[in-house]
Write a protein that binds this DNA or RNA. Structure first.
Lengths: 159, 159
DNA sequence: ATACATGCAAACATTTTGCTTTGGC
DNA sequence: GCCAAAGCAAAATGTTTGCATGTAT
């Protein structure tokens, strides 16, 4: 029963969109990673960035901003490639479907999620886990460490 | 490719198992919640508690400790009921399958997960998020708040 | 005796792949 | 022109449900 993610304010993939800078940065990283500049890739980046929220494969595929009309399999493969290249990250947010969200160096997001209606809210907090993370990296020998922190509960409406 | 979760040391659902106290406590809570004391329920509790780790539906169903030989659907329904009653919790650990883990009042676990081989390791840390949680509960109006904290990266073998 | 629990089989939802065609470089 | 990307359709995986039967209380 999770509600559809809010559509992004962006309408035409042009400079009057919000987050132009972020989009440019992402496109740049894709190019550097050897991806071809296709319409579908462009759309997916736009959609995820403008949404500013984790989205499922279905969310992206059905977004009205997917002007290329790219196929589910195409979007899926794009998401995979972007994940492999560290441009986005897959999150396990309890829904049956996987969620994807953009990764920008130096940025980190935590979420507050209603276990009943599935609403996902980004938290504006300074996460106290960073320190811990370095410590764990050292002790465990894991590399490329990052973390996910989610709070679950019933939102006011569902309470 | 996540490896099968390690089987528990418990062999016969009796007092020489480790964690007898925890099992008793869980059984008690189930009874209080109005669940019938069936063989399948008993097995599921044992398996999850002795494993001391999150397990998938398949892990539980295929466990050699599922002496009752209960069906996938049965185990599934048990897990649902236990979740609804707060006796266990479903975790989103990035695998396609959902993970389930026992909940004991006053206990909290964080995990370290290899994004390549899927190995799940419980962390023995004092989680710095508790304070934050109370703060968020107050600000957001959410009730029944709890959190999940996971660290992801490549384990030494996969690095 | 009654209501809840189980088993089996089938329906679903979502992800993932194979193969041919298209299009970026 | 060559190889990556896209499109279409089907397979794979994991979850969930319907219904007849068994069993705890």
């Amino acid at each position: 029963m999770p509600p559809p993610v809010q559509p992004a304010p962006c309408k035409h993939s042009h400079s009057h969109c919000a987050n132009v800078d972020l989009i440019e940065q992402a496109v740049e990283r894709c190019k550097a990673a050897g991806l071809r500049r296709t319409r579908a890739l462009n759309d997916v980046l736009h959609i995820l960035i403008e949404a500013g929220q984790p989205m499922t494969l279905a969310d992206v595929t059905e977004s009205k901003h997917l002007h290329s009309g790219a196929d589910r399999a195409t979007v899926y493969r794009l998401l995979m490639k972007l994940e492999e290249r560290g441009i986005l990250r897959r999150l396990g947010l309890h829904d049956r479907a996987a969620y994807y969200t953009m990764v920008f160096p130096g940025h980190h997001n935590d979420y507050l999620i209603c276990t009943k209606c599935g609403k996902i809210q980004r938290l504006e907090i300074s996460c106290p886990v960073e320190v811990l993370e370095k410590q764990i990296a050292k002790q465990s020998g894991f590399t490329g460490l990052y973390h996910e922190l989610e709070f679950f509960g019933l939102c006011p409406k569902c309470s």
